[in-house]
Amino acid sequence: MQASCHLKIMLTVQCCWKELMSVLTPLFRPIGQLASMAAITVALVAAGSSPALAAAPASDPEHGMISVTGNGQASAVPDLAVVSAGVEVTAAAAADALAAQNAAAAAMLAAIRSRGVAERDIQTQGLTLTPIHDYQTNSQKPSSYQASQWFGIKVRNVSEAGSIIQAAMEAAGDAGRINGISFVVEDRTALHEKARSEAFKDARSKAEQYAALSGKSLGKLLSIFETNGGGAEPASADRAEMLDTPVAPGEVASGVTVDMTYEVY
């Protein structure tokens, strides 16, 4: 009787185990597949990455660098004359000095405008009324007063600069003063670009020469730095030259300097 019961229990357990496994097996099958796929993927990545790592080029100890400086200049005929002119008057009384200055300045401006200079090209750059002391008498009272006014005048037709100066001085009379004149290129972009191009060519030529002298070949450009440039150097004339109406504009020059570094191998 006991053996019969024991047999029934074992059969029941086996039956339940088979049913349990039939339920759990489908659930664990995807996990097994994922594990296999992961193992295959790792193997493929390892196999694929090894050649790439092996092909990575090592740094070549024979490679080096050459640093050079290039200079470039460009010039052009100026298209703008900038005149510094004004009036200066001395009188015993401040009011008289200022009134005389006003009259001389008005006459000068009228003459300049009559020669076609636009209002936007005329600018007051200084206006003063200064007491003058006689230090030999040690007097605290001014012996006279000096009134002055200075203008910056842009002459866009450079060939007329001399005649405009002459007209301004004649209108102002003895009060007229000329501080100087300069000739410039108003838009210096193209001039500066040309100078930069010349500086680049100069630096490149030097680098090629140094590479050849070193028995190496010139490689890629690693860096370039513009150290100065941008401003044109105007031609100018001092006051003594301006007492004669003719003026000589000459040329305006712009310079650029670049520092460049190349690879050599």
Rank of each mutant, 00 (worst) to 15 (best):
221 L>H: 01
69 T>F: 07
141 K>V: 13
214 S>C: 03
3 A>G: 07
90 T>D: 03
231 G>D: 06
3 A>D: 10
199 A>E: 07
213 L>M: 12
69 T>R: 11
141 K>N: 14
17 W>Q: 05
181 I>E: 06
129 L>F: 06
166 Q>N: 10
163 S>F: 00
90 T>V: 14
260 M>K: 05
47 A>D: 00
151 F>C: 09
65 M>H: 11
172 A>T: 01
253 A>Q: 07
161 A>D: 06
183 F>D: 01
39 A>S: 08
175 A>M: 00
86 G>P: 10
136 Q>I: 01
29 R>C: 07
127 L>K: 00
187 D>N: 13
147 A>D: 03
261 T>N: 01
50 S>L: 07
78 P>T: 10
97 A>H: 09
265 Y>K: 05
154 K>S: 14
261 T>P: 01
123 Q>L: 12
231 G>V: 01
95 A>Y: 09
245 T>Y: 07
123 Q>F: 13
64 G>N: 10
129 L>K: 03
174 D>P: 09
207 A>R: 07
128 T>I: 02
218 L>P: 04
123 Q>H: 14
182 S>D: 02
180 G>R: 14
118 A>L: 06
43 A>K: 02
246 P>Q: 04
136 Q>S: 14
58 A>G: 08
80 L>G: 00
242 M>V: 09
92 A>S: 09
137 T>H: 09
144 S>G: 15
54 A>T: 15
245 T>R: 14
171 A>L: 04
109 L>N: 04
70 G>P: 01
247 V>I: 12
124 T>C: 01
116 G>A: 11
120 R>K: 15
115 R>G: 12
74 A>V: 06
47 A>G: 06
160 E>H: 15
171 A>S: 12
102 N>M: 08
137 T>S: 14
125 Q>R: 15
92 A>G: 07
57 P>K: 14
142 P>I: 06
